[in-house]
């Protein structure tokens, strides 16, 4: 049995492949792919770019760069750590503004640990969504599918948190649509600035970033609603609070489908 470095062994099949290749080549770097003389030679031809094509490319890029100036475009050019910080900062600001100027009437009587757990869960998911959504393209890509999963988990968590009051009996309050719509409206109002700032901070190139921004906005809005609304009945939280998430993400999905179909025509 040959001594195979751990980092090149990922499974029985891969181990077998590596061993068989190493046994044919003394050079480990060239062991895979290097065996074939054709692939040891430089790639036969780089596709050339004529001077005209190059000039067109340069002028096109310069034109795009000119459009980048002014407005809020400087926000997306900020260092990534600062962009993530700003995204989280705006979300925290929305929650803080609500807690200071629009607090629920029973805030002093509410069970603090329960509220902190709700805000903590929303905060962790918000942090992950903002970080994933603003992940720069010059860094290695994040595992495929995790971003979509994060959007789904964020929406599911809003529903799960609606059932959280079951742990502690709360006074029954009306849970009809009439009482839910004002919260849905306010939640949308709380979430919009977060969504807009995150879109301005996004550098583009990753369509999923818009959905992560929508999920982040919904999480921040639900955090603010937890401090704004004293109605904790399951029906109300589902209709008036969690629905904000489905409104944000659903609108985006609908927009993409409609625009996508229009573009295809």
């Amino acid at each position: 049995m040959r001594n195979v470095p751990d980092e090149v062994v990922t499974g029985r099949l891969e181990r077998h492949i590596y061993i068989s290749e190493v046994s044919m080549s003394p050079n480990k770097e060239a062991a895979i792919g290097g065996k074939d003389p054709e692939f040891e030679a430089p790639y036969p031809e780089q596709i050339p770019l004529s001077e005209d094509e190059l000039q067109t490319l340069i002028s096109d890029v310069e034109s795009e760069l000119r459009q980048e100036r002014g407005g809020f475009s400087y926000l997306r050019c900020l260092p990534s750590s600062l962009r993530v910080g700003l995204g989280l900062g705006v979300s925290a600001l929305v929650v803080a503004v609500v807690s200071i100027w629009l607090p629920r009437t029973d805030l002093s009587e509410v069970f603090l640990a329960r509220l902190l757990i709700i805000l903590g869960v929303l905060g962790i998911l918000l942090g992950a969504s903002v970080w994933y959504g603003l992940h720069p393209l010059h860094r290695p890509p994040l595992p495929r599918g995790y971003d979509k999963l994060l959007v789904v988990v964020s929406l599911v968590s809003l529903v799960v948190l609606a059932y959280w009051p079951l742990a502690i009996p709360m006074p029954s309050k009306p849970d009809d649509w009439g009482h839910a719509v004002p919260c849905l409206f306010m939640g949308t109002l709380f979430g919009l600035p977060v969504y807009l700032v995150l879109r301005l901070l996004d550098r583009g190139g990753r369509p999923i970033a818009a959905f992560l921004a929508a999920a982040s906005a919904a999480l921040a809005a639900n955090g603010a609603l937890a401090l704004f609304c004293d109605n904790t009945s399951i029906g109300h939280v589902l209709r008036g609070h969690a629905s904000v998430g489905f409104l944000f993400v659903g609108t985006l999905v609908l927009w993409r489908v409609v625009v996508g179909q229009l573009l295809e025509r």
Binding site: V61, E64, L65, L137, H138, R203, G204
Partner: peptide, 16 residues
């Protein structure tokens, strides 16, 4: 894609 790459290089310049 090439144009988008240069645009992204420009946008990410402060990360370099």
């Amino acid at each position: 894609i090439v144009q988008q790459t240069f645009l992204q290089v420009h946008r990410a310049r402060n990360d370099f």
